[in-house]
């Protein structure tokens, strides 16, 4: 490339200007206003290209920045990267202080020493997580995978995979210090992803173990109580029990149905207490038009209701639980005259 001396100077100045690109325009103009003339003097006095004699434009710009940038009329506005670096430095300094302060808590000079001792434990955990993620990706059996890395529901595979994951992770962990920069970064990034996936898995495992008593009732179609909306409890005389509470063998309250009501005019109300029935006026055995204290109430023993009929023996398949599934109840019809008082009262 053939250039005149002036071209060379212009190119050099241009490159210096570019290297100072983060400075404000006005500051840069001021700093460089004499540079072409100055470089002309340099070029006129001696042999060799400007780059040979002055170094690269970038190095020249760095020198210029250093010698001109700090004092008097040259405020050096901090760039974004400087601010970021500053914040990082401050954060690191605080971390170091906290590190030393927390040290005695772990019986060490610094808390980080304790964390370093925990490293092998992390390797084992990482191996487990990696095995879980691998199993989760490879398993297409559709069965719930559980807490072991099962593939196709096989425990043997799970244990093999677990052993491989843990051993591999330990091997990697012991080598990671000697890895080159990029493989090390990749390892760290992989670990971060694993931790995130593990957090997600942990949260879903946690919520499914907490929600287990309810989840099946509400969402599983094969559950016989899946379409239960409300629950009506009757005593032996067929009287509706209001505000009943039901529990399982562990004393956990059972929750069935939808805790809201539409009354006769279609108004929606939330039910706030876990007592049954939610909507007493929807009593399936209620005598239409009956009101409290009428003859109907005297006949059946309960105001406004006529009860589900005689108490069936438990062996009667069709009437195991009339209160839960009234549609399948043995009582042929909730007729107003069916005798509902069992002789064994008292």
């Amino acid at each position: 490339m053939i250039t005149t001396a002036q071209d060379e100077i212009n190119l050099y100045v241009f490159a210096v200007r570019a290297a100072l690109g983060d400075l404000p325009e006005s500051l840069r103009d001021e700093l460089l206003e004499d540079l072409p003339e100055h470089l002309a003097e340099v070029a006129a006095d001696g042999e060799g290209s400007l780059t040979d004699r002055l170094g690269s434009p970038e190095a020249y710009a760095a020198d210029l920045r250093m010698s001109a940038g700090f004092v008097g009329g040259f405020p050096d506005p901090p760039g974004r990267t400087d601010q970021f670096k500053e914040m990082r430095d401050v954060a690191l300094a605080r971390l170091r202080v906290a590190d030393v302060r927390l040290g005695p808590l772990f019986g060490a000079e610094r808390a980080s020493e304790f964390l370093v001792q925990l490293r092998p434990a992390w390797w084992v955990l990482r191996g487990y997580l990696a095995a879980m993620v691998l199993a989760w990706m490879l398993d297409d059996s559709g069965q719930p995978i559980g807490l072991l890395p099962r593939i196709g529901g096989s425990e043997a595979v799970a244990l093999l995979l677990l052993a491989a994951g843990v051993l591999g992770s330990i091997w990697l962990g012991r080598r990671s210090v000697r890895l080159a920069h990029w493989p090390q970064m990749a390892l760290y990034a992989g670990s971060v992803v694993l931790v995130l996936v593990a957090l997600g898995g942990f949260l879903s495992a946690d919520s499914s173990s907490r929600g287990a008593p309810y989840a099946d009732v509400n969402y599983d179609n094969s559950n016989p109580y899946g379409n239960v909306e409300d629950l009506f409890v009757y005593d032996e005389q067929g009287r509706l029990v209001n505000n009943a509470r039901i529990f399982d063998q562990n004393g956990s309250p059972l929750r069935l149905g939808n805790s809201y009501c539409y009354d006769e005019s279609g108004n929606y109300t939330e039910v706030e207490t876990l007592t049954y029935p939610y909507c007493a006026e929807r009593d399936p055995f209620r005598v239409p038009g009956a009101s409290a204290g009428t003859e109907a109430g005297e006949r059946s023993g309960a105001p406004g209701t006529n009860g589900p009929g005689p108490v069936p023996p438990l062996t009667d398949r069709s009437g195991v639980s009339p209160s839960v599934s009234p549609s399948a109840s043995a009582s042929p019809s909730p007729s107003a005259t069916s005798p509902s008082v069992s002789p064994s009262t008292r």
Binding site: R53, L54, Y60, A61, D63, L64, M66, S67, A68
Partner: peptide, 8 residues
């Protein structure tokens, strides 16, 4: 350096 003198 040249740049240092110029800047100074």
């Amino acid at each position: 350096g040249d740049a240092s003198v110029y800047g100074t």
